[in-house]
Amino acid sequence: MSPRARATLQRCLRDPRVIGGGLLALLVAGLALFAPWLAPHDPQEQDLLSTLLPPMWAAGGEAAYPLGTDTLGRCILSRLLHGARIALYVGVVAATGAMLLGTVLALVAGYFGGWIDWAIGRLVDVWMAFPPVILALILLVGMGAGVNKVILAIVLIDWTRFCRVIRSEVLVVRRRDYVAAARLAGFTHVQTIVKEVLPAVTPLVITLFSLEMGIAVIVEAIMSFVGLSVEPDVAAWGVMIADARTTMNQAPWGVIAPVLAIFATVLAFNLLGDGLRRALDARLVTSRGEA
């Protein structure tokens, strides 16, 4: 590792946002990974004799159901833990896909310029005319519902978030002397892009990736809330909120628990992204967990 890279890494690890967000993200990831061993019950297991139980610390709660139960007597804690797996699966896969597609198009557009840049730019313009949620709904109607379709929809929508920001950075990098030097030294275009341009924009890509994971978690929650993501009996956070919404006045905890889970997960990725952005001194990126 070069001294400069080590200094950058140290700067990242000193930022309280990076540490806080990173630890929180690791916690959520750990809970998701070990959900089958941590969960006290099977997430689908129904106990129709103890429906809508309050959490264990409230009056009438039972220790067997630490966070209470839902309308079908399913353990909220167990569903929450298993829901984390879906949230993180979508978060990681969708953000990776959007990052790959967006970054490749940005590198191509920014590096080669000309008509390719023009064409990709117009494509971004068309995409930007949609509120992301609307495009996601239309895509999911066309492709059919399902959690992998949600991932595909996020990739097909959010590549623009990467493309726009990274392209303008590539435009700056391309004019640097070392890029010209690489070409003079006999590097092909592909070599120049991969060895010279890509490393220069990597900090920005990492920052955007972290923020995109938060966005993807929210989009999955929205889509499972309206019933376009996982099967209705699967424990996803959006499904849990939609189910518990009807009994909110008797058992508010059924709504509050998944809302807190989404909040904690998105907060972790946003803090991480925010901290990395400051530490890596990347171009200011405004982002919103909004689709």
Partner: peptide, 23 residues
């Protein structure tokens, strides 16, 4: 602000109903 931004509008909608409509 970082905390507020981690909650999307539709969850605010549900939380607000819970706070000012139900509780």
């Amino acid at each position: 602000t970082t905390g507020l931004m981690a909650i999307p509008e539709f969850l605010w909608a549900i939380l607000l109903i819970l706070a000012f409509g139900v509780a």
